[in-house]
């Protein structure tokens, strides 16, 4: 676990993905967030629930970037902010 002092020295990291629709850009970003431990317990529980509700038997990490209702209904990223 990082101490607050170490966290004070962090820098912003900018990440860009490019690819066609459904190439897995959102899933990749979600996976990177997950692997770097940026996802807190309740956020993970939330997307586990949301994945189950969508009938998936896996956790759809793209739901981390695709948070708006329309994005989830259509399974696409509409907006990046």
């Amino acid at each position: 676990m990082a101490t607050s002092r170490e966290l004070l020295d962090t820098e912003l990291l900018r990440l860009v993905t490019a690819g066609s629709v459904d190439d897995g850009k959102s899933t990749l970003i979600g996976r990177l967030l997950y692997d770097t431990k940026q996802i807190l317990v309740d956020q993970l529980e939330h997307i586990e629930d949301a994945s189950r509700r969508r009938g998936h038997d896996y956790v759809d990490l793209a739901l981390l970037t695709d948070g708006l209702r329309a994005e989830r209904e259509q399974g696409i990223t509409i907006d990046v902010a």
């Binding site: 676990m1 990082a2 101490t3 607050s4 966290l7 807190l40 317990v41 309740d42 956020q43 939330h46 949301a50 509700r53 708006l68 209702r69 989830r72």
Partner: peptide, 23 residues
């Protein structure tokens, strides 16, 4: 120090108003 070590988001831990539905 407590916030740096927490594993739950602030609204997830403390706000009822967000728990009503997914959106």
């Amino acid at each position: 120090d407590e916030i740096a070590a927490t594993n739950v988001t602030e609204r997830g831990e403390t706000r009822a108003d967000d728990r009503v539905s997914e959106a």
